[in-house]
Design a protein around this nucleic acid. Structure first.
Lengths: 196, 196
DNA sequence: CCCTTTCCGTAACAAGCGTTACCGTAGCAG
DNA sequence: CTGCTACGGTAACGCTTGTTACGGAAAGGG
């Protein structure tokens, strides 16, 4: 039983390197050699941890979704009441404590890649549907009397606003600072507040 | 005075081909050969019309901005009153009569490219600032009594919502149909309606 | 009708890509 | 300490990329 490795740890390391390259150099700069260099290894290791570049991208995309889901769970659990949870979950989506713009840039990169790759597109849709379901559940808890149609409209409006602000901030941080994003979110949430 | 060509018409043709390739094959498929094939010529013509690939992308980006500005002007001119103009301009941004998803895909592609290219990023910012100024002017006409801060917040919220819905619809058309986008826009515009 | 001059398709270039094959090597079993 | 085996770095492969150089063709002036 000679040398053994931790395949899962390697994949996580490489996925993290993928994010960093994607955030810094964008989609055209996302090459296996750049990822390997960022991870401190060579393409040999990358191709032993993943069969192909697409597999690496899919794993990195899945890991991004898992981490955002964990963060949203934490934000929701740390809040009191449905409205507070809604504020917390959406708020952390537009104002991450660390590396916010970086994550938005990564998100845009994956989105652009998904427009040309069905597998990536499906992961994007799954992640977005999961996020939509979470927000819809919280909105329904705030306004139990609302019919399904209004629930869906408000949910998708909130998600659209948050993702739109993130996307615009990624390309123009000066025009969309964190404070403005939070204010915009608060204004959008006004109709859902506990005191109607 | 031998053979002469219409350089401007060639550039427009190639920029249109660039959009089509970008919409269909995404950013990774945007190669000079693909653009040339789509335009019905060879790379020779492309490199004679533009000195480099980046120049082609910049021209295509500028042309996209000009056309959206023309459409917005037309929508604004055809409307009665500031609120009607606001509805028309934002409405045509989320529900284009022809090739809506295609244009959103192109927009996402240029955005992703801009994250790695300063020149493209500056064009994106300029276009977005122009759109912001237009919306802000119309919002101000609807609510002259509002202070600058609220004007800016509402303007950027509206633009964020519209662009967010467009981006999400580009990757998941089934979840964000045109009707839902228009309803979401109408809800966001409710506070600006002529009858308060 | 010819000639000149511009245009543009052809084909090659170097560089970089994802991927593959190979072999030195590092680490555990005995 | 020795030997075996999975690991991973090296280097090459074929392909595609953006870009360049060149030559045939086409069109307007004399």
């Amino acid at each position: 039983m000679p040398k053994q490795r931790d395949v899962q740890a390697q994949r996580e390391l490489l996925s993290n390197a993928t994010w960093q390259v994607l955030a810094e150099d964008g989609l055209p700069g996302l090459t296996l050699r750049a990822v390997a260099e960022r991870a401190g290894c060579t393409t040999g290791l990358v191709m032993h941890a993943f069969p192909t570049k697409k597999a690496l991208l899919l794993h990195a995309r899945d890991l991004l979704y898992e981490r955002t889901a964990v963060r949203a769970d934490a934000a929701e659990a740390a809040s009191a009441g449905a409205f507070g949870a809604l504020e917390a979950v959406l708020g952390q989506a537009v104002d991450l404590p660390h590396g916010h713009h970086e994550e938005s840039r990564v998100w845009v990169g994956f989105l652009a890649a998904a427009l040309a790759d069905d597998a990536l597109a499906e992961r994007h849709r799954a992640a977005n549907h999961s996020f939509l379901a979470r927000i819809r559940r919280l909105v329904a808890a705030c306004r139990p009397e609302w019919p399904d149609e209004r629930l869906e409209l408000t949910t998708k409006s909130l998600v659209g606003l948050v993702e739109g602000l993130n996307v615009l901030a990624a390309a123009d941080p000066a025009a969309y600072p964190a404070r403005l994003q939070l204010d915009a979110l608060a204004q959008a949430l006004a109709e859902l507040g506990p005191v109607s």
